[in-house]
């Protein structure tokens, strides 16, 4: 057995509850450093909410978690996989980490049920019957049991986003990432999507989400992270919004509410 494995073993044991660990993570696009030393932990069953001004690096941080961006420095461990080391199995990682985007990105040529079944069928190779059952189950979970046969263009934005969430759930991920999933929706539709996320949180799903909905952030967050200029500027429970310690967060909250 090699030395690094032995050295890592105790750490892994105490890590059991840590799903994501950023340690001084850096990320640059060309010469522009977008993440400038982020340290952050996400624990199983927790909802971590990233807030911050546009361009502060929230999406980039989120996208690092499932390997959509590769980091340039520091250490990033997700579900026990070291993303800072070469040769990460991204496909294995992505079976454990789901993501939902602002723009839904449903496959327009497939029905809601087919959107949901595609990855379980092709990646996990489950049978068609099992897949149908699974689609029924996850669509019901997001309140769209009756829309299984609808195509995306027949659905409202809120319904499309809920199908996208169901599509993610169908892979039974250990962690789901949400990047401003309600930003394209009007307030009424925003509410229906947020309620789905809230229910997932109550069900114990581990989630990291970026949102501009401050009220929602405060109510749902177990951990609230205010990002500023590519760093974690302030972090804590949802209460940090009520009592900001830094002028930047105070100003951000002042603008946001």
């Amino acid at each position: 057995m090699d030395a690094t494995l032995i050295a890592d073993a105790p750490a892994a044991a105490t890590d059991r509850e840590t799903m994501v660990r950023f340690e001084d993570v850096r990320k640059a696009f060309g010469t522009v450093e977008v993440l400038r030393g982020i340290s952050l932990e996400v624990h199983r069953g927790d909802v971590t909410v990233l807030i911050g001004r546009s361009g502060s690096g929230k999406s980039t941080a989120l996208r690092c978690i499932n390997g959509l961006e590769t980091i340039n420095g520091g250490r990033l461990t997700v579900c026990g996989r070291k993303l800072h080391e070469p040769g990460v199995d991204l496909r294995a990682l992505r079976q454990e980490v789901g993501i939902v985007f602002q723009s839904y990105n449903l496959f327009p040529h497939l029905t809601a049920a087919q959107n949901v079944m595609l990855a379980p069928r092709k990646v996990k190779r489950i049978g068609i019957r099992e897949a149908r059952e699974l689609a029924r189950e996850v669509l019901a979970q997001v309140g769209l049991a009756d829309k299984a046969e609808a195509y995306p263009e027949q659905l409202s934005g809120g319904q499309q986003q809920r199908v996208a969430i169901a599509r993610s759930l169908a892979m039974h991920p250990r962690l789901i990432l949400f990047d401003e999933v309600t930003s394209a929706l009007d307030p009424e539709l925003t509410g229906e999507v947020l309620r789905v996320i809230e229910r997932l949180a109550q069900g114990g799903m581990t989630m990291v989400l970026v949102t501009h909905e401050m009220g929602f952030a405060r109510s749902v967050a177990d951990q609230l992270v205010f990002m500023h200029q590519g760093t974690v500027w302030e972090a804590g429970s949802g209460d940090i919004l009520r009592d900001p310690q830094t002028p930047e967060l105070r100003q951000f909250v002042g603008n946001g509410l």
């Binding site: 959509l68 992505r94 789901g98 993501i99 985007f101 990105n105 990855a119 092709k122 990646v123 996208a164």
Partner: peptide, 19 residues
């Protein structure tokens, strides 16, 4: 975004292309 979403669902490159 379509391609990104598909690869985030752990589909292989060729599954994304053909499927």
């Amino acid at each position: 975004g379509q391609v990104e979403a598909a690869s985030c669902l752990a589909l292989t490159r060729s599954q994304v292309i053909w499927g």
